[in-house]
Write a protein that binds this DNA or RNA. Structure first.
Lengths: 112, 112
DNA sequence: AATAGTAGTCATCTTTTTTTGACTAATTGT
DNA sequence: ACAATTAGTCAAAAAAAGATGACTACTATT
């Protein structure tokens, strides 16, 4: 057999899965905007110049499937949908902020 | 003008860059192995079943370009190269561990 | 000189991700 | 009825990422 069990490598690296869930295109930006409150599709589209409906729909669906966002139908006028951080999403807020800090430190470190 | 300055969206989301640097294929696993000590190319290749020379070379180069790994020529027999966590890389160890923790909590959260 | 080990590169192919533009469908306003 | 806003879907194309196999180059051994 030449089949290689990918589990062996992936299984002992839990960070990989979370990184994949968080790192797709538009996802960090969506997550960041979600910190400020519930998100609506078209509003988000306007806040993310360059993102298409499709890209956004995919990113939102994947974030939802990853359990980071919850999707709610709001029965108000106008009838609409809100995306907001799930319990799990909120549990990751500190990590997200760490990532932002780590990124800043990294920028400076390049020169020295 | 229809040109959209991508900076606007990207610039205010520092986490995005770091996530991109960390999240490529094999990168989390390489980073994790680097926590245990210096890495050598062929040894790493054996430790990552499924990874090709090319994939590994690209991942290592990008991790190095991101300033996460340092590359050293070791003038010993056999002459070889070692990759190890840079100062910046070491600065991100805690974040990496947070990601591992966050991933574990996420697994459980899915069922409830 | 041939063989093996060091660490890769290169061109090419395949797979995955992202984008584009058209289309659907329900609700609300005129 | 018609238009606008809600939130998408779908097929196709383009772009990016990843994999494959051959090849390079150096050192050391036989």
């Amino acid at each position: 057999m030449t089949t290689i069990p990918e589990d062996i490598a992936g299984e002992n690296c839990p960070a990989e899965g979370l990184l994949k869930q968080l790192a797709g295109k538009w996802k960090p930006q969506i997550f960041r905007l979600a910190l400020e409150g519930p998100l609506r599709f078209n509003a988000l589209l306007r806040q993310l110049p360059g993102a298409s409906k499709q890209s956004l729909a995919v990113a939102l669906r994947e974030l939802e499937e990853a359990g980071l966002l919850d999707k709610h139908l709001i029965r108000q006028k106008p009838l609409h949908i809100e995306y907001e951080l799930s319990t799990r999403g909120r549990a990751l807020i500190q990590i997200f902020h760490s990532l932002e800090e780590g990124a800043k430190n990294g920028d400076k470190a390049q020169s020295g």
